[in-house]
């Protein structure tokens, strides 16, 4: 398996290189480096020329690309054109914030989704099964931006109005209240509740369907019948032989999802003004800050590859039938 992992990583390197070329072209196409200067009416053409020279924008595309790649590999990401901060620092902060939101939402969704899936499968065709099936269809059909806005409206605005409190129970924007000192858990929770719920609505819908299908497949298998024939308790049949086996595909799916969420929270972050990767990306896009966009695209792409690799390895660990040579 070690050999397999090493091989997978080696295969990934050329793919990431190709991606970097595409990324470079894409980032340059969408983001004009002069955009940062456009806002200032007093900028003269000479300034722009000096600026272009500073950034090396007059060199050939190829020279610019290799120069950028060299710096990228050595970890020198440069400074943001607009925010004037080291890009590495900005990305690290955004990534951390995104991961907090993603992991909270994913953990909650997994717990609830798995539980719903188990009950729905065990009580197949019961009212619980039908209700949760209907709700998850609703959840799957409702895009995350709609869920987000409805949550802001109902749990943010209306709830405050009904309870007649001076400040909202759940905040509809940001990660912390302005001016909070240090780490205030309650304040954090009141900020993360709505964005995490917006994400969780979909994830729970998907995971509960997935778990239900997976567990039903297992429960209908021959080895569950064998387990029952052994005289072990129904509870043990369900947990040890049923759920444990049915969780394998779900676990790997969740691993893949973490990779996707690195760059995939754009909408949630926009709606709830969450200072993560998505917000950073859109801001950089509007600013034409290609210095930020380039490593951003590389990181999100790499996250997908890494997560997929982890998912595959996890599968091999959890399911003895899978062997990679």
């Amino acid at each position: 398996m070690v050999r397999y992992t090493v091989r997978r990583i080696f295969i990934t390197i050329p793919i990431l290189l190709v991606m970097s070329v595409l990324t470079f072209m894409g980032a340059r196409a969408v983001a004009s480096p002069e955009a940062a200067l456009r806002f200032n009416p007093r900028v003269r053409p000479e300034d722009i020329a000096r600026y272009r020279e500073q950034l090396g924008l007059d060199d050939s595309e190829f020279v610019q690309y290799t120069r950028w790649l060299g710096k990228f590999i050595t970890g020198d990401l440069g400074n943001s054109l607009v925010a004037r901060r080291p890009v590495g620092e900005m990305l690290a902060e955004a990534l951390r914030n995104t991961m907090v939101l993603a992991i909270v939402a994913l953990t909650v969704s997994l717990l609830i989704g798995v539980l719903i899936g188990i009950i729905a499968a065990v009580r197949q065709n019961s009212w619980f099964d039908y209700t949760t099936t209907g709700l998850s269809l609703l959840g799957i059909a409702t895009p995350v931006f709609l869920v987000g806005l409805m949550l802001q409206l109902v749990l943010g605005v209306y709830l405050q109005r009904w309870l007649n409190t001076s400040e909202p129970i759940f905040y509809t924007a940001g990660m912390t209240s302005p001016g909070t000192q240090g780490f205030d858990l309650m304040d954090r929770l009141r900020h993360i509740a709505l964005p995490a719920t917006a994400l969780a609505v979909q994830l729970i819908a998907v995971y509960s369907r997935y778990m239900r299908a997976s567990l039903l497949e297992v429960l209908n298998s021959d080895y569950i019948r064998t387990a029952r024939s052994k005289g072990i308790s129904e509870r043990r049949v369900l947990t040890k032989h049923g759920v444990r086996t049915a969780l394998i595909p779900l676990t790997t799916q969740a691993a893949i999802d973490i990779g996707l969420l690195v760059g995939g929270l754009i909408i949630t972050e926009v709606i709830f003004a969450w200072p993560g990767m998505g917000t950073l990306f859109l801001q950089a896009l509007f600013d034409g800050d290609y210095v930020v966009i380039l490593p951003w695209l590389m990181i999100t792409a790499a996250a997908v590859f890494i997560a997929n690799l982890i998912a595959d390895l996890l599968y091999a660990v959890l399911d003895p039938r899978i062997r990679y040579a």
Binding site: T226, S229, G231, H241, T245, I248, R321
Partner: peptide
């Protein structure tokens, strides 16, 4: 089921047709 479980496996046991699917793969 609880009562049956004292019989299953202990006093009456069963061999199934296809052991590959009848035994838990994991």
């Amino acid at each position: 089921t609880k009562q049956l479980n004292t019989v299953r496996g202990d006093r009456i046991a069963m061999i199934f047709q296809d052991a590959l699917t009848a035994l838990n793969p994991v």
